[in-house]
């Protein structure tokens, strides 16, 4: 006990110091640890929630992206189909139009030929008639001095045949 006394150990002081510690523990627990730990926990929960939300948003974004890609691919396929159909239709239409145009051209050409031929025949007929008339007139003029009517008639007819 004497040694303890020399070291300054006093049971009353020891209890007082233990009491000091207990009081400080209580006060710090009440005013420091409790509110701070609650805040740390609240912050941790918020961070976890935010991370979870961010993950969900990221997943949703990825899903939307996939969906968008799918729709793009589908749209591209549809567009290609439409273009192909349109091209085919245009080609068919073009072929038909060309054929129709060719046919019309042929009709026009035929009509023109027919007209030319008719006009040519008409002209030839007219020319023949005119020539006959000229020959007849010339023959009549040449043979006016010949009194033999029969001979005249015969020569005229011959001249007309020669024509």
């Amino acid at each position: 006990m004497e040694a303890l006394g020399k070291l300054g150990i006093d049971v009353r002081l020891l209890i007082a110091q233990a009491l000091n510690f207990a009081i400080l523990l209580f006060l710090l627990h009440r005013f420091l640890y409790k509110p701070l730990l609650a805040m740390l926990e609240k912050r941790r929960e918020m961070i976890e929630k935010s991370v979870e939300e961010a993950r969900a948003i990221s997943e949703k974004l990825a899903s939307v992206e996939t969906q968008r890609e799918k729709e793009f691919a589908s749209a591209r396929t549809k567009a290609a189909e439409i273009i192909e159909k349109a091209t085919l239709h245009a080609e068919e239409k073009s072929t038909a139009l060309i054929a129709k145009a060719k046919h019309e051209v042929l009709l026009v050409v035929d009509a023109a030929r027919e007209k030319i031929r008719t006009e040519k025949e008409q002209m030839m007929g007219d020319a023949k008639e005119e020539l006959s008339r000229l020959v007849l007139n010339a023959s009549r003029a040449l043979l006016s001095d010949i009194s033999d009517a029969e001979l005249t008639e015969r020569l005229t007819k011959k001249a007309l045949k020669i024509k």
């Binding site: 110091q17 000091n20 400080l24 006060l27 005013f31 509110p35 701070l36």
Partner: peptide, 24 residues
Amino acid sequence: MLVAWIAMGFLVIISLVATHKIRL
């Protein structure tokens, strides 16, 4: 013992100041 009380007082006061208006 006096220093222990000073330390206690100091710690309690700054704890109160620190957590008086606790913010997120």
